[in-house]
Simulated assay, not measured.
Amino acid sequence: MNKPLSILAVYIITAVSADESEPNIEEICRFVAPGTTILRPNTCEQWVRCPTAFGAADYDDGSCVYGLYFNKDTGRCESIENVNCPYESNIVKNRCASKKTGSFLPHPTNCKSYIYCQNGKEINATCPNNLIYHPTKVACVYAKQYECELKTFPANANPICKAIPKNKILADTKDCTKYYKCNKDQQLVKLECAEGQSFDYVSSKCVTQKSAICHPLAPELEPESDVCGNADNVHIGYIADEKSCSHYYICNKRANGRPDRKPLHLKCQNEHFFDINTWSCRDRLRVQCYLDRCEGIENGYVNVAGDCTAYAHCKNGVTIKRGKCGEGFNFDERLQICSQQNISYVACKS
């Protein structure tokens, strides 16, 4: 239980030989979704249910009764002849143990052969000529009459793939956008979620980054921005920050035509605001911004967008109070006074 995670990484990153030691239960359960039921390594009849949460210890286990194997893909104990056990080469298997005398079973590794059960023992037999055994008809037939599929597990199967259910997905503990899956050759391959998605450790699915629950060991994801639009409306170029008068984004053009999810986020120099009309950083009084114009002001007064007679009192960069000049007066942000002069700052024009 205390083996370092680097040990399991060996099983994930490389294909392993059949004689390499199998990972233990704790190692496997760290990477599958909570509550996953797996086949206990080096057995055919024993199962283990992983804890219901990462780091928990509420394991559950059991063993199928005599004559049955645990089917890791269905999560049930089933007749031996119906289960493809990846550890069968390590176990002496008698398929006739629970069968009546006179029963016929398909051979697990040879389409031309079959097994006859007599007094609980196996008797191997072979179809004549080029015929193959048909388990449903319980007869030897021509190859064109039946498509034989052997239930064998690859000899060089990855140890993780031997224990987990078919199509079960494992989280990548180093990158929340990636995951592992066993291919048809029972080797672990690394896959990646679609752009804008992350792998959800609990549901074992790729979901939107905002709703994904990453594996507890995976680094926290950098939040992806949606300021550059969506698949139907892609923005390219300079975009004003909807929360700041002085900040802006640069949305780059992507080769795949999708929105830039990690645009540059920049800020104009002091006393300057971003002007979306000219894509420029300009004197703050030459830019009309309807957000809080107290941005960057520690203690002072600023014009109010849309009303040159009004002013806002600023403290630590935010508005704490608003007021209005008397009749016939306009507020002059530069002079910090109410003036009878005609104020024509773009910042306060209606």
Rank of each mutant, 00 (worst) to 15 (best):
A56Y: 07
F273E: 07
C308G: 12
D175E: 08
N90L: 15
D275E: 12
Q288E: 08
A310C: 12
C127Q: 05
D172A: 08
Y114A: 02
H134S: 09
F273H: 12
P4F: 13
A212K: 00
I28Y: 07
E295R: 13
D172H: 09
C127D: 05
C161Y: 03
I337W: 04
Y133Q: 06
N330P: 07
G257Q: 04
W279S: 14
P23M: 07
W279A: 11
F54Y: 14
S246I: 01
L188I: 08
P219H: 08
F331A: 10
N342D: 14
A18I: 08
E192S: 15
N342I: 15
A9E: 15
Y87K: 11
I164E: 01
Y180V: 08
N156Q: 15
H265K: 08
E45V: 09
T14S: 10
N129S: 12
E149N: 14
P86K: 09
C281N: 01
T136R: 13
S225H: 04
F70L: 07
I297K: 08
C348H: 02
S339I: 10
I250M: 00
N2A: 15
E220I: 11
P128Q: 08
Q186I: 01
I160M: 03
C50M: 00
E45D: 15
K253W: 03
T177C: 02
C64A: 14
N233S: 11
A57R: 11
G237W: 00
K168S: 13
Q118H: 13
I160N: 00
C148F: 10
A310T: 10
D61C: 10
P34W: 00
I239Y: 00
R49I: 06
N270T: 15
L170E: 06
C214S: 06
P263N: 08
C325K: 06
C29W: 07
N156M: 14
I38H: 05
P154W: 14
C29L: 10
G196K: 11
I115V: 11
G326V: 07
F199W: 03
P108M: 12
S350F: 09
H272R: 15
L188F: 04
N330F: 13
N90F: 13
K181C: 09
C117L: 06
I297E: 13
K121V: 05
C182E: 03
S79F: 09
L8W: 06
I25G: 02
C193R: 10
T126H: 01
H265W: 06
K190P: 01
I160C: 01
N330V: 08
H265E: 06
Y59K: 13
A139R: 05
F153C: 13
N270G: 14
H134Y: 14
A218D: 07
I239N: 00
G120F: 08
A155Y: 13
D19G: 04
C206V: 11
E222V: 10
F331I: 10
K72W: 01
G229A: 10
F199E: 04
D260P: 00
N84M: 12
Y133G: 02
A15F: 06
L191F: 09
L5V: 13
P216M: 04
D307G: 09
A347H: 02
K168T: 13
T101G: 09
A33F: 03
N71I: 05
D283G: 01
K184P: 05
N110A: 09
I123G: 02
G102T: 12
C268E: 08
